[in-house]
Write a protein that binds this DNA or RNA. Structure first.
Lengths: 299, 299
DNA sequence: ATGCTTCGATACCTTTAGGGTATGGAGCGC
DNA sequence: GCGCTCCATACCCTAAAGGTATCGAAGCAT
């Protein structure tokens, strides 16, 4: 005996609603005899009579009544499941886990998020700030779907897209006297304390900055390490030292900190989106595409 | 495209649980290639990828995860529905509406109910006291499934089974002086008031009693009508008159009433079970069979 | 690297569930 | 009693689903 079958169930529902085999068959777009047979088979399967076949009318038995109530419900659920699954598959619903470096939250990230939310309101966004090393691990372990890293995460398992290149600026305590000119030269800071982040794991953004300074002939003697950008800025704000950060950070003014362009420019840093090379999720691809669009418009 | 199908869904569940097409196929007792195809078709139907087919392992997509959660639930529901429907069909569950004349509640009816409840605890019994005329209407209108009537309900639409025949006794107020002998003769009551029930609709049990008296040459002058047995007994208890009732009524003693056998016997009354000739419900047939069994044992 | 193994996909054939047409048979109304 | 309605039965045919053989890509060990 074949197992319970949705087709049969919906046939039964139709007959139960029409209370008439002929009309039900018409509504189902089929001939009456096969419909009769399907109902008989359903009755065999369940081991219960579903209809009282009276002389001039059919009625539902108690078993039939119950099957109608619950069967209808199940059919509706299945309709709904199909819709939901399709929507998730097309990226219109579901979940997207995003990891990002702290500095990206000053620049285009908020715009990207806003834009994505506007187009896919049903996608549940999960945002986690991390440093580059954490991003790498999280992406490998599939704990995030997309990572905003600085610089790009290099790995054969990843796909990387550069979003924007920013020049570097210096964040310094407003207690330090500076020359009147708007721009500063790296050489001016020979004897100042530098706030760097993160200390571990290496190599990190700290090493990138140190290399740049070295290339400029600058030998930094006094260094403090912070765990992340936020902490570093706090240290700057209380006058512990100065810190070299991406330009976009300066767009959010902060008490106790002044930002200055470095002239001549000493280098640039690129924000990138990264995702797994075997990524199947449609959300991810749509999100990355949208991120690139937003970045292009903002430049 | 064929519609969503339970077989496919359960195949998907199996693959999702095994995370391996080969093992899933084995568990399902089929070959691997058709299973792969069914999953592909399911993916087409839903319009969403369900598995990430990685090099060395498969994983569920978000859409697949959701389909698994909800699909499992639906399959379980369907299992459960089938069980429930089968049980109802076999009379092990469901509802049975019973109508009965008041006098039957003194005799075997309680035993029948008790016995049925013991064997079919999941059947919901619905008990309604009525007089014979109401029973007739209720059975015609399918408001009850089974009727305990006295005497039998005669109609081509009904099936009738006699349960037990009882002799008649007289219920009299204990304020009346009676001869010392245990049994009484109808002629003794020539001048007493008779309590009869019900007055409408006619003919009723009242007419049955009047005919019996007439046959005995008794001409009752003083009559009071009550709506039912209970009311009649109340009238007897306060001394309004006497009443002729089935013997089983005397098994429940009542303050103010004494019962006496009538000698010589003047007639008998039969309790019957009645149900529709087109009755399909398995409960009903099982119930009637059981009622007859109980009646046979109690005689 | 190179062959071996694993695992899902593809190709092709066979089986069978399910649908169609024609017809039977019971009940109801004129 | 004749015809009409309505569900069931009989028989055929199509197409969906299963089986076997084989491919092709990836991982692993030698």
């Amino acid at each position: 005996m074949t197992q319970m079958n949705l087709k049969r169930l919906s046939y039964f529902i139709a007959v139960a609603e029409e209370m008439h085999f002929g009309r039900a068959a018409e509504r189902l777009g089929m001939a009456q005899p096969p419909l009769s047979r399907q109902i008989q088979q359903l009755e065999q399967e369940t081991g219960a009579a579903l209809f009282n076949r009276g002389r001039s009318a059919i009625t539902l038995t108690q078993a039939g009544t119950r099957l109608y109530e619950r069967g209808r419900d199940v059919l509706e659920q299945i309709e709904d499941i199909q819709l939901e699954v399709r929507r998730i598959g097309q990226g219109a619903e579901g979940r997207l886990r995003i990891g990002f470096v702290g500095s990206s939250s000053y620049g285009i990230l908020p715009n990207i998020i806003k834009s994505f939310r506007a187009n896919f309101p049903a996608v549940n966004l999960n945002l986690s700030p991390m440093n580059n090393a954490q991003l790498f691990r999280a992406l490998i372990r599939r704990e995030v779907d997309v990572a905003f890293a600085r610089p790009a995460l290099e790995d054969p398992e990843f796909v990387t897209r550069k979003l924007s290149e920013e020049s570097l600026v210096v964040a310094m305590p407003d207690t330090i006297d500076i020359p009147a000119r708007k721009t500063v030269n790296l050489a001016d800071f020979q004897d100042h304390t530098f706030v760097l982040y993160p200390e571990f794991p290496r190599p990190s953004y700290a090493d990138f900055i140190l290399e740049l300074c070295e290339a400029q002939g600058l030998d930094i003697e006094s260094r403090i390490y912070a765990m992340d950008l936020q902490t570093a800025l706090s240290l700057v704000a209380i006058g512990e030292g100065l810190c070299i950060v991406p330009e976009s950070v300066s767009s959010a003014p902060r008490n106790g900190i002044r930002y200055h362009r470095i002239e001549p420019p000493i280098g640039a840093t690129a924000l990138s989106v990264n995702y797994r090379i075997d990524e199947q999720g449609v959300h991810v691809h749509k999100f990355v595409k949208m991120a690139q669009d937003v970045a292009r418009k903002l430049v």
